[in-house]
Design a protein around this nucleic acid. Structure first.
Length: 258
DNA sequence: ATGGCTGAGCTACTCAGA
């Protein structure tokens, strides 16, 4: 089974790129972030015609997360945490992986820049709330996959020039510590688990030729709880969609699991 | 590089992204 996460930066502006990706890569489940539209304007019909069910937690103009899935996803919920600003940033559901009932948690973490503003406080509080909720969840269900746009650069190796990011909301030590805390609840960062010293990115800015210069960041992640590690086959960052015309600034990260 | 470029909502320009 192929599970993919992709921040598409608007589902409607990206529809042709997404359809092309689906046809080439044939994911079973696709986690989308930053769909930037309300539920009623989500192109569910188009995805149905291409063999996918849509499960959407939208919002006008900003944020928004969704699942696309060839099979049904059970127990869809959009109230995993109580977001203080009521932004659409988490959708959860359940599927069977082998014999394991597995909870899928699709997240779009607040960016948090500029630092030392309300936006930064919102990110910190959001992460604190999310961690508390995961701590509770893993006691109930040992099979969890958390994936999406974390807006966190975990380590120096995960950015083209870490010195430029030392006081950035994506790399500040207290934010990276939250990520470590999350991992320490019983998860593996699957990309880093399989690639101990490889330097690859999932995001490149639109401006200043960042893509051409490979000035990127690794901020989109797959975390799996330890109980699922036996089921993981491979993980891959697929850079092709970022090279296309009118791309998202993020590229998909692909997990094989069975 | 406190900018650069892109998208939504709207139809001039602001807000947000990372």
């Amino acid at each position: 089974m192929k599970i993919v996460s992709w921040n598409v930066n608007s589902v409607r502006a990206r529809i042709e790129n997404i359809l092309q990706y689906i046809k080439n890569s044939k994911p079973d489940v696709l986690f989308l972030q930053e769909i930037k539209t309300q539920n009623e304007n989500f192109p569910s019909q188009t995805f149905t015609e291409n063999g996918y069910n849509s499960y959407v937690f939208g919002q006008k103009s900003y944020n928004g997360v969704a699942f696309l899935s060839k099979s049904k996803i059970e127990n869809i919920k959009t109230d995993f945490i109580k977001d203080k600003l009521q932004q659409s940033r988490v959708i959860t559901g359940e599927i069977l992986i082998g014999k394991k009932k597995t909870k899928l948690i699709n997240i779009y973490v607040p960016n948090g820049n500029p630092v030392d503003t309300e936006k930064y406080e919102y990110k910190k509080n959001w992460l604190t709330l999310f961690l508390k909720r995961i701590k509770k969840e893993i006691k109930i269900n040992p099979n969890l996959i958390i994936s999406g746009d974390f807006n966190i650069i975990p380590e120096e190796i995960d950015v083209y020039d870490y010195k430029r990011y030392e006081d950035d909301a994506l790399f500040r030590l207290e934010i990276r510590k939250k990520y470590r805390e999350l991992i320490n609840l019983g998860f593996s960062d699957l990309y880093r688990y399989f690639n101990k010293s490889k330097q690859e990115y999932t995001f490149w800015d639109y401006f200043a030729g960042s893509w051409q210069k490979n000035y990127g960041l690794r901020i989109d992640h797959f975390l799996a709880s330890h109980n699922l590690l036996d089921n993981i086959k491979s993980i891959n960052i697929n850079k092709t969609p970022r090279s296309k015309t009118k791309p998202s600034d993020h590229t998909p990260i692909e997990l094989e699991i069975s």
